[in-house]
Amino acid sequence: MSNPTDRSASQTPAAQAPAGQTTRRITVTVNDTTANHDIAVRQSLSDFIREDLGLTGTHLGCEHGVCGACTILLDGQAVRSCLMLAVHADETTITTIEGLAEPDGTLHPIQQAFHESHGFQCAFCAPGFVMTTMALLNSNPNPTKEQIREELSGNLCRCTGYHTILKGVETAVQLYGSGRRDASETTDTNRQDGGTANA
């Protein structure tokens, strides 16, 4: 996973608001819906997602970039939404936890995998783990056990001791990763998630 602060450091077009200007208009695609939003320039991306969009599945565990509960996909990359300002998300494509399951409630294969492995307990951290797993399997459909541990080490869970979460990712490799590997060998247009589509 990339350093969550990389993005905010490198991409700042909308952030360069004229001095004194406290709101900005941004255009952002969230879970396949594109819309304009007038936002406070000081608003964090996580607050924008939770408060302005009402997508409360993205959780705030520490608000200082350590726990990973607020992880979302931004242009396909896992980022900590508490460490980014919403203005930085201008002209990006975001996937949150709400964007994964089918409208009829059918779980996404990664969610299904965590369900089958008894992945979580209180599940406050679950959305962050699911999104991190998705970013991992999108870039590496068949990770080793050690790679899984390493990639997930940026997300904290206080309930499980991680055992069932790691099992869940291993199951997700079967249900999702290997499907992606096959897909990537043939065509790239049949992706199951919106997160990696180019903005």
């Binding site: 939770r50 997508l55 409360t56 599945g57 993205t58 959780h59 705030l60 949150t96 936890i97 709400e98 994964l100 399951a101 409630g105 779980l107 969610q111 965590f114 369900h115 089958e116 008894h118 992945g119 979580f120 599940a123 406050f124 679950a126 959305p127 699911v130």
Partner: peptide
């Protein structure tokens, strides 16, 4: 039996209601 969790449908999809929500 290790019955699969009833809670998961809402909690894995971001549809839980924690107090901050």
């Amino acid at each position: 039996q290790s019955v699969k969790r009833v809670e998961d449908q809402r909690l894995l999809t971001g549809n839980g209601t924690y107090v901050a929500d």
